[in-house]
Design a protein around this nucleic acid. Structure first.
Lengths: 205, 205
DNA sequence: TTGCAACTAAACTCACCGGTTTATATTTTT
DNA sequence: AAAAATATAAACCGGTGAGTTTAGTTGCAA
């Protein structure tokens, strides 16, 4: 007994269900999304949906985990370690800032916050795959660059955190609180250059 | 006609309702809180509650607006402008960091994120009363200190934002994503001194 | 004492939602 | 073509939650 309550991935319309669930969950969050709505958007009957997934929670976990992995993948291929720090950091910031402001990153972040009590694992997984991974990657570069004598850093983890945080200045709060949703290239560049400038003022060789 | 659907503040137990609603909303958020539960915690019948507030939404707005104003009040009396920047900023950061990590600030933030689509005004009001107000206050000090020649800042708004953001390093993310909830004085001091150090490296005279 | 206003508990309406079942139809396999 | 697997619509179940109604109680003021 004790049915494993697992996911049945064999059906013809499995991918349709995933796609529909992704759309609705990203739009409405966990509580906000109704299973009927997901089935309708997926172009599938509710019974079919339930023949793949034992319940709503597992469907939600599946979607968000997939999304987190996809994000980690994207975040990984950002840094070219051969250039001098100022250049590397400027390029990195130029990619980090718009990503942090993207509809996608903002949605996922909000869902994590909203469902943190219901799904503590979700927020933690997102942290590990997203901000945590990015900072780790950055810390490795800073370590290398310090060894080369290009930077002077005693605590690379702290330095990496500070740089990430400097990338959130101004615009991220505006986006998160819904005060402003569109950002000009000038606004972004301003944040990027100031992040690099402040970072280099402290850690530049 | 078109009943104003307004709040009736005259009843004897009005304050009880507010107190109960504050507790339950802060604990469970908007969707998570049931009106029955609020009435029970407030020690009041549901009919009485509905004789004060036309609906749940308005009750929620009332509570959160009150909370935001209270927070703005607290945040205002932080800075003593007569001391040198390094000291002022260290003291400010020492108060800002623990506040950002407090159960209260975290709860309100999460509720704002969770209900951003349902109550866009709520998140914006919180931003204006909280982060926005704090940064404005800090910017004024930086302006003053720059005029005195103690600091060298061309864009004080940007500098204020950077300092606030440096206060969020490491610990705030851990708290927001539920990875860690308790923080030692050492962890906090580490963030504070590094925030001040980095800030002064860029903007110190 | 009477009358009135606030309050109460409890039952009730109505809508929605997660999940199941049923009876039928379509595809795929043999 | 027959059998087996898969999908379907629609009805259904049990539960919950917002908001209303009702019938009765408390307390105060004239």
């Amino acid at each position: 007994m004790t049915e494993a309550a697992t996911i049945n991935r064999t059906g013809r319309k499995f991918q349709q269900v995933l796609d529909g669930a992704r759309e609705v969950f990203l739009r409405d969050g966990f509580e906000g999304a109704s299973v009927d709505d997901i089935a309708r958007v997926a172009g599938v009957s509710k019974a079919t949906l339930y023949s793949y997934f034992p319940d709503k929670r597992l469907l939600f976990s599946e979607i968000t985990q997939t999304e987190c992995n996809a994000m980690a993948e994207r975040a990984l291929n950002l840094i070219d370690e051969t250039n001098p720090p100022r250049e590397v950091l400027t390029i990195a910031a130029s990619q980090i800032v718009p990503f942090l402001l993207s509809e996608f990153a903002q949605r996922i972040f909000r869902i994590c916050m909203a469902e943190r009590d219901r799904f503590p694992e979700l927020a933690r997984a997102f942290y590990a795959a997203g901000p945590g991974m990015g900072r780790q990657r950055l810390a490795e570069y800073l370590e290398l660059s310090t060894a080369r004598g290009e930077l002077v850093i005693d605590d690379v983890q702290m330095a990496a955190e500070q740089f990430s945080e400097l990338c959130k200045v101004k615009l991220w709060n505006l986006a998160a609180f819904g005060v402003q949703t569109e950002f000009s290239q000038e606004e972004i560049d301003d944040v990027v250059t100031n992040a690099v400038e402040t970072f280099m003022a402290r850690y530049g060789a």
